[in-house]
């Protein structure tokens, strides 16, 4: 028999409710920051414009990492740009998500044996969704975004939390790939 007595929710429950409400807004309004250094970036214009129109999902491009929710890493990452990518990722407001494009972000793709390119993106920043393919076609890019929305809905897009929890591991990987910069000025980094 159910009790009719009013039972106040605990603080965790209230927080969880608010979080779920927030998740509804977050998954319906994903603002992207496009890190277009790889060839997969060519798939984004058709996704944004009239052919596939990602604005109907509430997605749109943003200018700076502060404003954005999703970081799109479109393709291979050289060591030089990885440092910038990490800097940009750390500037984003939480909660933040990362989508890796193409096989290069998964295992290095055709650049897997290059000395200047990293192979596995999720060793350095937490990736929530990978869109496989070389290159992935636009439909699969759109599918990837819808997958990300489902993950947010099911509270599984927790990469940013993971980055906090296993920060040491990520930092160690980053350091192993990039080495350490001793002099901090405009020329050495």
């Amino acid at each position: 028999m159910l009790s009719t007595k009013f039972s106040p929710m605990s603080k965790e429950e209230v927080d969880r409710k608010w979080w779920e409400i927030g998740d509804f807004f977050r998954r319906n309004s994903l603002w992207m920051l496009m890190y277009c250094t790889g060839c997969c970036a060519i798939e984004l214009p058709p996704a944004m414009t009239s052919a596939y129109d990602m604005e109907r999902l509430g997605m749109g491009p943003m200018a700076t990492p502060r404003q954005a929710d999703v970081l799109l890493v479109t393709g291979y990452l050289s060591l030089k740009t990885l440092r910038r990518l990490i800097y940009t990722y750390e500037q984003m407001s939480e909660p933040k998500y990362v989508v890796g494009f193409g096989s290069c972000t998964i295992n290095g793709g055709i650049y897997h044996d290059s000395h200047a390119v990293i192979n596995q993106l999720n060793k350095y920043v937490p990736v929530d969704v990978f869109v496989a393919g070389c290159m992935p076609n636009t439909e699969s890019v759109m599918n990837g975004f819808i997958d990300l929305m489902d993950l947010i809905k099911n509270k599984k897009a927790n990469g940013w939390k993971d980055y906090h929890e296993r920060n040491d591991w990520y930092k160690a990987n980053q350091k192993a790939a990039l080495g350490e910069v001793k002099i901090h000025d405009e020329f050495h980094e």
Partner: peptide, 15 residues
Amino acid sequence: MDTYTAGNFIYTEEL
């Protein structure tokens, strides 16, 4: 100094 610089590392305030 932790501002948006398009990913560049800048340490000189005047810049």
